[in-house]
Design a protein around this nucleic acid. Structure first.
Lengths: 145, 145
DNA sequence: AAGATGTAATTCACATGTTAACTAAAAGAG
DNA sequence: CTCTTTTAGTTAACATGTGAATTACATCTT
């Protein structure tokens, strides 16, 4: 097997694909002075409810050092709250605040419209298939060995 | 259309997929004290021949400010050379050096083995289909309206 | 209870991502 | 030929990615 050229390698294709998709969302995020990762953290908390940092990091695919900084920023802007867990001084429960929920809800319509436009251009069926294939790839590669 | 949950959104799936793939390559890159992006730049130069910075940035999917820093690092380690373009004082031709070629060639076998293992787990046909679908997505979304 | 081990989170150091501003050089308009 | 505009590349400022070291706390062991 020849090594793939940079024109057809999986990591490059995944990177570029993510770039063209995120390009549609960046103007919206910039208007609200929030980063892509901060937005991801808020959405996970809004969907899932209060979480501890480790679980939040996993669900948002953010590394612990980054999450520490993001949590600090979101806390200072009062988009989230932190409550220490009783019986374990290390952990804290992170929850989205009403202001955070308001932000998510304010962005929701535009977010939906952007996804709809993508589905329209790419095809809803294709979109579903691509998600399935990506999940399958993640599954096949994240299992040990 | 409901907005996708974080568990099934295209940007998250692309991010996670890229993570699980790159996890296989990071130990190799770390052993040779080279970053993922530096490696990408070297591969593009090795495959394509000398390029100017803008073209190189496009092909490697790296933004100009990052490329400036990466080029500086690769130049200091003498993995690449820079030659000013005659008749245009702004541009410079960037080329991989013999040491750079040697590095790429040293990594090639392991790189191939890693890709083979991925194809074996995920399926070669699936792999090809996924690449096709990603290219199609990139095409459909990068065209201006 | 004291020490060893393990775990959650943070901090550190450095590289890259991202946007905006800036510099230098080239190309175009008058 | 001078002024304006465009283009290539860099610099600046701040946020995140990444791996290693560190801190604070829990748990285990004896």
């Amino acid at each position: 097997m020849l090594p793939p050229s940079t024109r057809r390698s999986l990591p490059m294709a995944l990177l570029r694909a993510r770039e063209v998709i995120m390009a549609h969302f960046r103007p919206m995020l910039a208007r609200h002075d929030i980063t892509e990762q901060q937005w991801r953290v808020l959405r996970v908390l809004a969907e899932t409810g209060p979480l501890e940092a480790t679980e939040l990091a996993n669900r948002a695919s953010i590394l612990p050092p980054s999450l520490t900084r993001i949590i600090k920023a979101l806390d200072e802007r009062e988009f989230i709250t932190r409550n220490k867990v009783k019986d374990d001084g290390r952990r804290a429960l992170l929850a989205i605040s009403p202001a955070g929920v308001a932000l998510i809800e304010e962005l929701a319509p535009e977010r939906t419209a952007i996804y709809d436009a993508i589905e329209k251009r790419y095809g809803a069926a294709q979109h579903e298939r691509l998600l399935d294939m990506l999940e399958s790839l993640i599954e096949s590669e994240s299992a040990p060995d």
